[in-house]
């Protein structure tokens, strides 16, 4: 995966955004978390198409890097990466949130399709990811664990319990990425819990980097590669400033598109926005 060009990954991001809209629209009245999926596209694409060492043809390969999407509600960015990298056949896109589907509204463990763990109860995916990184160290394995967390998710106590313990255990094989899109379910993160996240992660003992624009692929890849290659024996945190609902005109920065159902007119507008950007 490491040889892909930025242009190639840029194209993947465009397709992933289209996948997010298609799957979210298929969900109909069941709705979808469009905003947080779209803000995290470049983060997830950077990992799956550039940074992570993995093989979609061999999902159980013991040496693969692990990815945990702790902010499980943003599963559509994760699913789109799994679809576009070959873990999930495109035919399953129409089953998102449908009866009997394995593509639930929050990821459910399914190694065969690249889903390492179940997540979506906020904070817990991160806690489990920290344990997975520790296990790699105990077993003298060299793979890394990447974990995507949300900024609203950092309200959770378990995040900080796990963060302190990860630092105590010098988990340099753990790279967390914070999708700092500034909006959570009920409003702006600055209104609900206005904290200096970079300072808090540093205080917890983490090696922290901030990406000015986490929807800029070059910036995102550069930051992740730096953390991947870092020899600092501390867990790494990349705080990526992103735009909620990135790429869809009426969703960007909106407080209304954390999660909701999309009607036909909105769908057409979203498709038109994405086509115009290509």
């Amino acid at each position: 995966m490491g040889t892909n060009t930025v242009e190639y990954i840029q194209e993947k991001c465009a397709v992933m955004r289209r996948d997010v809209i298609e799957m979210g629209y298929v969900a109909g009245g069941r709705g979808a978390h469009f905003g947080p999926a779209l803000s995290s596209i470049e983060i997830v694409a950077s990992l799956f198409f550039k940074v992570m060492n993995h093989d979609p043809k061999d999902p159980r390969w013991p040496e693969r890097d692990r990815f945990v999407q702790s902010k499980g509600h943003a599963c559509l960015s994760y699913y789109s990466a799994l679809i576009e990298s070959g873990y999930i056949d495109k035919k399953y896109m129409s089953t998102f949130k449908q009866d009997e589907s394995f593509l639930s509204g929050h990821p459910s463990r399914n190694i065969e399709h690249g889903i390492e763990i179940s997540s979506g109860s906020l904070g817990n995916g991160f806690g489990v990811a920290c344990g997975m990184a520790k296990a790699a160290k105990i077993k003298n394995e060299n793979h890394k664990v990447y974990c995507l967390v949300g900024d609203g998710e950092c309200n959770e106590g378990i995040i900080w319990e796990a963060a302190m313990n990860a630092a105590k255990n010098n988990l340099g094989n753990l790279v967390a990425i914070l999708d700092r899109n500034g909006v959570q379910l009920a409003g702006k993160t600055s209104d609900i819990m206005d904290v200096d996240l970079a300072a808090m992660w540093k205080a917890a003992g983490w090696d922290v980097a901030v990406v000015e624009d986490g929807n800029d692929l070059n910036q995102m890849i550069e930051a992740l590669e730096a953390m991947k290659n870092s020899t600092v024996e501390k867990p790494h945190m990349v705080i990526a400033n992103t735009t909620k609902g990135k790429g869809i005109s009426y969703m960007e920065g909106s407080l209304n598109w954390h999660a909701r159902a999309m009607d036909e007119e909105q769908y057409k507008q979203a498709v038109s926005d994405l086509e115009a950007a290509e």
Partner: peptide, 24 residues
Amino acid sequence: RFFDVGIAEQNLIDFSAGLAVEGL
């Protein structure tokens, strides 16, 4: 083979879960 997560019972379970995911 012994780990103390501090006074943090939620993480006691999540951390253990992560170890179990990897076969311990």
